[in-house]
């Protein structure tokens, strides 16, 4: 066993902590034992499958096109996941898929355009995954927030529309509030990094024996990319959804208030 490979024995040993979680659940009658066991098992199956597929994609002899194909699949699945997590948000499938595609295009263009990382399967797939994964929660948050805000604030929005104010201006204060709400957690996370917690990539690099300063610079670059990705995806979803909630003749559509 080394810092870069824990082996099956190491994996099995780490499972002890899952048993601890189950015991705590039983002791406190949280009724979460099944959920914890199912989550652990599902994560294991998913990650093992991903690891096996990644092994093929990241093989030095494999074409980089496989990595790009992987990214396309991730973008589509991200859109589908968003629809499942926020079904009350109209058009979330297409908006989410579009937002993720734009995030990937912009972010990878910056990463590879400036030569921050080399264009290889082993950089394309994890970087895209990291940006999509971090953007998902914020996208759900902004989608729900906008639907909820517009349903609750219908009188105020219609009062502006009734004054002849075009829909983008009538919506702006409310869209802005929703965008801020969705972005603030990521900003707070970025502020707290290093003081409150050590982020995953850096921890992994340090465990793998990479010099701490090198690990920090890579982590910082990733944090900036993630913040940029979250801001981009939230803005695309926020503005796209806002547009969708109005008709071409500047009326606010009927909304079901299901958002949290």
């Amino acid at each position: 066993m080394s810092a870069t490979s824990i082996g099956w024995t190491g994996l099995a040993a780490s499972f002890v902590l899952i048993i601890v979680a189950v015991v705590l659940s039983v002791w406190q009658r949280l009724d979460l034992s099944r959920s914890i066991a199912w989550a652990s098992l599902r994560a294991a199956v998913q990650l093992l499958l991903v690891g096996w597929a990644l092994h093929l994609v990241l093989d030095p002899g494999a074409s980089v096109l496989w990595a790009w194909a992987w990214v396309v699949v991730m973008v589509v699945f991200a859109g589908m996941t968003l629809r499942r997590r926020a079904p009350e948000v109209p058009g979330i499938l297409w908006l989410g898929t579009g937002a993720m595609a734009i995030v990937i295009l912009v972010s990878l263009a910056v990463i590879f355009g400036f030569g921050i990382f080399p264009v290889e399967g082993r950089t394309i797939v994890p970087l895209a995954g990291m940006m999509i994964g971090n953007s998902m929660t914020s996208c759900v948050l902004v989608g729900r927030r906008i639907v909820g805000e517009f349903a609750d604030r219908r009188p105020e929005i219609e009062a502006r529309l009734a004054l002849g104010v075009p829909w983008p201006d009538a919506a702006r204060p409310h869209t802005r509030a929703a965008l801020r709400t969705a972005l603030i957690p990521q900003i707070e996370t970025t502020k707290a990094v290093g003081l409150v917690f050590l982020p995953g990539a850096m921890t992994g690099l340090v465990l793998a024996g990479v010099d701490a300063v090198d690990a920090v610079t890579i982590q910082l670059a990733l944090m900036y990319l993630i913040l940029g990705s979250v801001a981009t995806s939230v803005t695309v979803i926020g503005l796209g959804l806002t547009r969708q909630l109005f008709t071409a003749d500047h009326r606010l559509r009927r909304l079901d208030r299901q958002a949290s």
Partner: peptide
Amino acid sequence: DPCRLRRSVGMVFQR
């Protein structure tokens, strides 16, 4: 144009 119409036909709401 709905925006121009609404400036000619104003609305005062209940609340």
